[in-house]
């Protein structure tokens, strides 16, 4: 999968990498069990500090998106089993609340928001059914 990183973005570098890896998993571009580059490799490829990449991998590991083996390196969690439990649903609502508050204030309509959500959701479903 390709990671596309913008250096001048307001979103911190580690957040961009993390977001894209999670999206990649949902879209099926990163398969369970697939290897990711080592910390050194990825940092040198992007041209950023090792610590930034290390931070990404540690967070992804904590949230169980990846597993880190001493030998085989960083791989996408082959037994990824995420549940939409109550606390998660609550935090999802919180996140969306803020996002759509701004969208509403900027004049994005409900129809537009729904359409956008549909498009994004379909990108995951379609890839998985392939």
């Amino acid at each position: 999968m390709f990671l596309s990183i913008a250096f001048e973005s307001d979103i911190p570098l580690y957040q961009q990498i993390k977001n894209q890896i999670i999206t990649g998993i949902a879209q099926g571009k990163l398969k369970p069990g697939e290897s990711l580059p080592s910390v050194r490799q990825l940092a040198a490829d992007i041209g950023i500090n090792f610590h930034t990449v290390n931070k990404v991998y540690q967070q992804l590991k904590q949230e169980s998106w990846v597993v880190i083996h001493r030998k085989s390196g960083v791989i996408i969690n082959p037994d990824l089993n995420l549940q939409a439990n109550e606390p998660y649903r609550e935090s999802l609502k919180d996140t969306l609340e803020v996002l759509f508050a701004e969208a509403y204030l900027r004049g994005v309509t409900l129809e537009e928001s729904q359409q956008l959500l549909k498009t994004i959701y379909q990108s995951y479903v379609q890839e998985v059914s392939k």
Binding site: F2, A6, F7
Partner: peptide
């Protein structure tokens, strides 16, 4: 737009 693209 400037982007760094890497292949994982």
């Amino acid at each position: 737009k400037q982007r760094v693209v890497v292949d994982t």
